[in-house]
Amino acid sequence: MTTTVDPTENAAVPCAFCVAMRRVAGAVLPALTVVGVIVLIWYAGAYLMNRSITLDTAERRDVELTAGEVFADTMAQERPRLPAPHQVIAELWNTTAGEEMFRIRRGELRPNPRSLFFHAYQTLAPTILGFIIGSLAGLLLAIGIVHNRAMDLSVMPWAIASQTIPILAVAPIVIVVLNAVGLTGVVPKSLISAYLSFFPVVVGMVKGLRSPSAMDLDLLRTYSASASETLFKLRLPSSVPFLFASLKVGIAAALVGTIVAELPTGARFGLGARLLTGSYYGQTIQIWSALFMAAICAAALVALLGLAERITLRRMGLGA
């Protein structure tokens, strides 16, 4: 027995799955298209920028190349001016999945400096440590500022002014100075990222802790609530959205800070060090893969905070 399916019947009653799919497609398709266009432009750019190198080598070797061969060569050079996307992805794959994270050297199990995960870890560890220190200090200072008028008047103008100073650009000096004192390794780098995540948290949290309305504050006063009760039961809960917004800014700044801090100090490990050695030796593919790794780390950190934000806000009944 054969059953004929009436096509109009399906279209009339769209299944829930189809609707969901269409909604996802409506949100994702435009972004995917834009990404696709960027990749296309990238390939075109790689061809145009690398062609002169290909033609020069061909001329030196006295070989005639067809257009196809020229194109193929521009996509597979060892030190291209602009590596093609697939070269960068291949390099990323080879230096992460293709390399052991640890290897045995002189009878000991040591991290493998060829693995990009190792470099990412060298950058991420101080970033996260510094971020935690900086955010906690920023939170404490914000609480102080909200409760103490003298502190508010003396510190706030400087906290705001300090955000207009290109602190990041002088991060390397701090590293050099601390190295001269004998502090090396994780501590100097995490100091930089602590410093960079400190001010966004201070400014954001002062705003957040002051966000409860006068009505709510008055209500707690009628309950004769103490300052600490007001803080824990009203001010802190209502500042949570501000907290996450400033934490996201802070962690992005902290990561950039650690990368830049690695630059002029001749650090051997870390994503910033990969950028620097890549630029010294003209290893463009290495630069781009380090850049992508940094981007992935930044995106992952911000996404993690975003997830924590959504879960927290939902449990507080504030989530959309």
Binding site: A31, V35, S279, I287, L291, A295
Partner: peptide, 21 residues
């Protein structure tokens, strides 16, 4: 719909790393 999410994503990235390039 397309450029804004990509732009917001790129704005959070360590773009200063493009300096050597």
């Amino acid at each position: 719909k397309g450029l804004l999410p990509v732009g917001a994503f790129l704005a959070a990235l360590p773009i200063v790393g493009t300096a050597p390039i």
